[in-house]
């Protein structure tokens, strides 16, 4: 099967700093791919390149067979930014209905998306009065409403209580099972275990493109956090040697 996302030799500079350095990878469709790495490793920049709003120095980013950000993709790719990007002075329902309209969907789909993130009870409340976790979920609803083929989520579970986090991850997998490709960034290693595939990013370079099981096997570490550390150490030695 053709990959949902193919990135070839992607280089991104921000000012004098090289943020992404010759990244090459592919993402399989219908899976949850985790983009893991510490804060500042280039995760958000990479996700912005996938949705076509990042200035790129060189390299190719192909999404669903088309150049990232090209007009036909905009109805098929959903993007949730790290800080909730919804209208604070609108209610949850009004936000969802606006984004539904942009994706050519109706009020029914909007209400379903609000329900899917567990915000039905807060649907008529203004976003400004919601908690941080509720805002994040409102923002997620506005991407789900378009029923996209590719869902790009930048740290969607930050600040959520554990129960809700599990629920959302179950939802991500349900979406993947129905054919949606998900790319989810996180800096929390316990979320890595929930991904079908992992991309480990550090200082703008890929440390690993693997599955959680392979990563544990390769490094001999049970814990993914430990496995990540192990990888960094081995790479450090390779460079020194």
């Amino acid at each position: 099967m053709d990959p949902a996302v193919r990135v070839t030799d992607l280089v991104v500079d921000r000012g004098p700093r090289r943020v992404l350095d010759k990244l090459t990878f592919a993402v399989a469709p219908g899976q949850v791919t985790g983009l893991l790495g510490p804060s500042g490793s280039g995760k958000t920049t990479l996700l912005r390149a996938l949705v076509g709003v990042q200035k790129v120095r060189s390299g190719e980013v192909t999404v669903l067979g088309l150049a990232a950000g090209s007009p036909p993709l905009r109805a098929r790719v959903g993007y949730v930014t790290q800080s909730p990007s919804v209208y604070a002075d609108l209610s949850v329902r009004e936000n969802a209905r606006y984004f539904a309209a942009l994706y050519g969907r109706g009020a029914h789909e909007a209400d379903a998306a609000v329900a899917a993130v567990g915000l039905s009870d807060a649907a008529s409340r203004l976003v400004t009065g919601l908690s941080g976790g509720q805002k994040a979920r409102a923002s997620l609803a506005c991407a789900l409403v378009g029923d996209p083929d590719l869902l790009v989520l930048d740290e969607p579970t930050v600040g959520l209580d554990p129960v809700l986090r599990v629920e959302l991850w179950d939802r991500f997998h349900a979406l993947a099972d129905s054919g949606t490709t998900l790319i989810v960034s996180s800096h929390v290693m316990d979320e890595a275990a929930r991904c079908d595939r992992l991309l480990l990013l550090r200082d703008g370079a890929l440390l690993a493109d693997s599955t959680p099981a392979e990563l544990r096997a390769d490094t001999g570490a049970d814990d993914l956090e430990e496995a990540f550390l192990q990888l960094i150490r081995t790479r450090g030695q390779e460079v020194a040697a």
């Binding site: 709003v53 950000g69 905009r74 790719v77 993007y79 909730p84 990007s85 209208y87 994706y103 378009g146």
Partner: peptide
């Protein structure tokens, strides 16, 4: 607020 960037990824 980031909504503009988000809008630019939609069909709008």
């Amino acid at each position: 607020s980031g909504t503009l960037e988000r809008l630019l990824t939609t069909p709008l």
